[in-house]
Amino acid sequence: MNLILPKIDLPDLLQSWRKKFTVFLPQKLERFSHFMPLDDANAEILEQPHNTRIPPKALFLPMTEALVKFTRFGTYDDAELEVSPRIVFGMRPCDAQAVQLLDTVFEQEQYTDPFWVKRQEKTIRIGLGCHVPCANGFCTTVGYGPFSKDGLDILLTDLGDSFLVEVLSESGKTLFENLHEASEELKNQAKEIQHKAHDAMPIAFETENLKEKIEQNFKSDYWDEVSRSCLGCGVCTFLCPTCFCFDIVDEVQRQERVRNWDSCMFRIYSLEASGHNPRPSRIERTRQRLSHKYAYWLDQIGLIGCTGCGRCVSYCPVGLDIRAMLRQAQSLPFEVSHAE
């Protein structure tokens, strides 16, 4: 179903949703944009071509959240979590794709994460396609795209003074009840915009055989080379929409067991009580980060665990660029293990 939404009507529509939902949309915070709940004041709808600084995964996996409440008498209870119905408006397709990937981690058959699921169930995701390519993104390189629909209930395409609304799920349908069906002409216009955007994204590196090269060169000097100037901070992982590692810590004063975002780039991440650390230096940690995204995810679900949002490229304090690292990885030697 393809509907047409004049941009003029958007503020009122957003406000009308607030009766039933908490509406999150990117708003200006200092010098960047950030997903925040909409309030009475009509927020300026951000028209920046680039992403929010913090990926919307934070709306599903908060930086800090209580898992368990305990008492000093040693009793444990689930932490309470009330989630009101919510709409996340203006998710970029790379971020929506990332949340979809994270579903495979948190909604496994064997162990389901109740906190993630609760937030997931109550959320309607409205995506906004990127008709202007961003500088550091590489979504098409990793097999996704600026108008990819995975993980979205609605996809919006910016047509200038209106949005084309593509309804992708039942829950998305109810939100846009009074809109008119888009004309064929507008549909075609949208398609053209989408194709153009797709083609405008450069191919940053080749993904063919990348996994094998990374796996076979586990002990290569390559890792030392690419990680030499790495500082070991958590910027790349914390801003990454698909990084999900967390730490579990007891906060005694609050009597809660909480989970906090954690990063494989930290020394203590894998440090064992005995003092042994399987990843003692930045070399192993960089290898873990890249291998996880470009090899292990592929083994687990057959998809690359990076959606090419480009945040790690833009905000690395020392200008390390995952695209350059992977281009360099492509020059590594490898043997074809199984002939066709």
């Binding site: 200092e30 930086m63 500082l231 958590g234 801003l239 975002w261 930290f266 020394r267 304090p317």
Partner: peptide, 25 residues
């Protein structure tokens, strides 16, 4: 706004401790 990524710490030449106070348990 802090996200506890510790980039400030790692970017600082004076922060060279092997174990930072926030890493203590």
């Amino acid at each position: 706004r802090c996200i506890r990524c510790y980039a400030c710490r790692e970017a600082c030449p004076s922060c060279y401790c092997t174990e930072c106070f926030v890493d203590h348990n």
